[in-house]
């Protein structure tokens, strides 16, 4: 398994945000972490990315334990955060270069990978433009390309379609499904059921606990996923 979470618990003071959460995400699979707002998805992502440390439980990324080898684990991980993290005053290329350097890629290697990534996105000619000039969809795609520059084995996305229009949302969802099909381990957090396909692996997180886990189509059966989600969480999707 590329990503393994075991018995992870976390509290904000007296408030329990995650309660003995365990799951695994496999290479080549799109694993959707579905949960309503406040289910604990963002807390889980903060723990997975080492922004804070869980006193209880274990996270292993590509064989590296987050507690004992956090840097090796982070190096194997690409992250698209819920909040936009592009520096709007820097050009697209400068943003990508900055990230590549944070991961220790030399300028030569970084530039080659950046060119390839921008070509894939049909954005090569916009490399010199400031990130501010890009629309929401392009900004997200740039962030996604950036998260892949250091060739991670695990890709984490925290509600990456927030604020995007329907077309941009569909495009990025399809794109990441393709990446998973190419062998990447993908963990995609969302509260939107239409981003999950029947063949995806699905983890349902509700009030800090895993309510259900398995192949999406097996879990919701004949019932539309949206209705299944509603009945399990009691909240509108």
């Amino acid at each position: 398994m590329s990503l393994s979470v075991q018995e992870l618990s976390f509290s904000y003071g007296a408030k329990r945000a995650l309660d003995a959460v365990s799951f695994e995400a496999a290479p080549g699979r799109f694993t959707a972490l579905l949960g309503p707002n406040g289910a604990g998805k963002s807390t889980l992502f903060s723990l997975l990315t080492g922004l804070f440390v869980a006193p209880l439980g274990r996270i292993v990324v590509a064989g590296h334990d987050m507690a004992s080898a956090p840097r090796a684990a982070l190096a194997a991980m690409g992250v698209v955060f819920q909040q936009p993290t592009l520096d709007l005053d820097l050009s697209v290329r400068q943003n990508l270069r900055y990230f590549a350097a944070l991961h220790g890629l030399s300028a030569r290697v970084a530039d080659a990978r950046i060119d390839a990534a921008l070509d894939r996105l049909d954005m090569r000619e916009r490399a010199g433009e400031k990130a501010r000039a890009l629309n929401g969809g392009h900004r997200r795609r740039t962030e996604l390309a950036r998260a892949l520059l250091h060739e991670p084995r695990v890709l984490l996305l925290d509600e990456p379609t927030v604020g995007l229009d329907a077309a941009a949302r569909a495009a990025i969802t399809v794109h990441v499904h393709d990446l998973a099909a190419g062998g990447l381990t993908v963990l995609w957090a969302t509260h939107l059921t239409d981003e999950v396909l029947p063949d995806d692996d699905l983890i349902l997180l509700h009030r800090g606990k895993i309510e259900a886990a398995g192949r999406a189509g097996d879990l919701h059966g004949a019932m539309p996923l949206k209705d299944w989600f509603l009945t399990r969480t009691g909240e509108p999707a």
């Binding site: 080492g50 982070l74 909040q83 993290t85 520096d87």
Partner: peptide
């Protein structure tokens, strides 16, 4: 959010 980007560097 750009602080997150920095702090998740290995």
């Amino acid at each position: 959010g750009s602080m997150r980007l920095l702090l998740t560097a290995p």
